[in-house]
């Protein structure tokens, strides 16, 4: 099990948080802590989460899977500064 802290910017759309949480549970990602707060921009929220990954699963892979979620604006890996910048 490896540990990573990720920081996501989400659009404030209904179901956005649910989609992220379901992605974690579908992909066997353990959530150690999770906090959601309004971001500087009013239409966005910041989600800070510490996750545990099973052996053989990489954080890069998880970041890309999070990047597929339509309401995710960007994802930053706080542990390694691995970042996925998405379009507007």
């Amino acid at each position: 099990m490896t540990r990573h802290s990720l920081s996501l910017l989400l659009r404030n759309e209904p179901g956005a948080l649910a989609r992220i949480v379901v992605l974690f549970s579908s992909r066997g990602v353990e959530v150690e802590s999770l906090s959601l707060a309004p971001a500087e921009r009013g239409d966005l929220s910041r989600l800070d989460v510490v996750v545990g990954l099973q052996q053989g699963r990489t954080v890069v892979q998880l970041i890309k899977q999070l990047g597929r979620v339509v309401d995710v604006k960007n994802v930053v890996d706080g542990t390694h500064d691995e970042a996925l910048e998405l379009g507007a």
Binding site: P14, G15, A18, R19, V22, L23, S26, R68, V70
Partner: peptide, 14 residues
């Protein structure tokens, strides 16, 4: 149905 289909849809709207 949105919650039921979260892991099997690319996206959903209500």
């Amino acid at each position: 149905i949105r919650s039921i289909t979260l892991p099997i849809t690319k996206h959903s709207f209500q």
